[in-house]
């Protein structure tokens, strides 16, 4: 372990941390935002549910490194553009998140929804004032899982020359320099932990009522069997 190297390369480490955050934050946010309407749709229609889940399963079956190349070819972009990584990570995030969102909306008690309808809520009002808040804790649990896996997965992008924390692993291997690889892995874990703390704080801020029975909602997404797929 060469501590001096860390001191000398703080700029490089800081820069790559920022790159990593810039590449992983958008997929998590976009994945969450898009999964809400898709998940709601899936919770309403069995056909939609099976179509979306099968699509998600197929996406999750494709290894990341292959999807990184397939995305620009199918969407017509440049093959080495960092945007490809953002799109690929968004697809993975959606593949995981739509299932969570569908479960979240399906778990909203039927009586509550009927009550809201009967006291005169319109469909939109009911969605934003009743269903979305009640689905919130499960959505939060799902997005926490997505956040951790997105941060770890983004490092694969380094293989196609997209600079991020994963670049440390390639450099370390080529230079036979263990310290660099350890720095990279710790940095990935720290970024994931920070994201998780931010998500939890946001959850408390947006859903203050949820604090007391937090244990009950303690990540049901983690207890479920993982989705079929590799990604790596």
């Amino acid at each position: 372990m060469d501590w001096g190297w860390i001191g000398r390369n703080l700029d490089l480490i800081g820069g790559r941390v920022l790159e990593h955050v810039a590449l992983t934050a958008p997929p998590i946010v976009i994945g969450l935002v898009l999964s809400i309407p898709l998940g709601y749709w899936a919770s309403r229609s069995r056909v939609a549910r099976s179509i979306l889940l099968v699509l998600g399963n197929i996406v999750y079956t494709i290894p990341a490194i292959a999807l990184l190349v397939l995305v620009p070819v199918l969407l017509g972009g440049a093959i080495l553009d960092p945007v490809n990584l953002v799109i690929a990570l968004t697809l993975y995030a959606l593949a995981l998140m739509v299932r969570s969102a569908a479960d979240a909306f399906a778990a909203v008690p039927h009586d509550v929804v009927s009550s809201a309808t009967s006291i005169g809520y319109s469909a939109w009002q009911r969605f934003f004032a009743v269903e979305l808040p009640l689905a919130g804790p499960v959505l939060l649990a799902g997005i926490r899982v997505v956040s951790v896996s997105t941060v770890s997965l983004a490092s694969v992008g380094a293989l196609t020359g997209i600079e991020n924390l994963g670049s440390f692993f390639i450099d370390a291997f080529q230079r036979q320099f263990l310290t660099e690889a350890l720095v990279g892995i710790v940095a990935v874990l720290v970024v994931a932990a920070v994201f998780d703390v931010v998500l939890q704080l946001l959850g408390r801020l947006l859903m203050p009522w949820n604090r007391r029975n937090r244990r009950a909602a303690e990540n049901p997404a983690l207890l479920r069997t993982p989705p079929i797929g590799g990604v790596a």
Binding site: V148, L182, G184, L222
Partner: peptide
């Protein structure tokens, strides 16, 4: 079991590979 799947999710494959290959 839960811990194992969380750790596997969080650890970057690339990092794990490079560290074990170097060791």
């Amino acid at each position: 079991a839960i811990l194992a799947s969380n750790v596997a999710r969080a650890l970057p494959t690339l990092g794990l590979l490079s560290i074990l290959l170097l060791l």
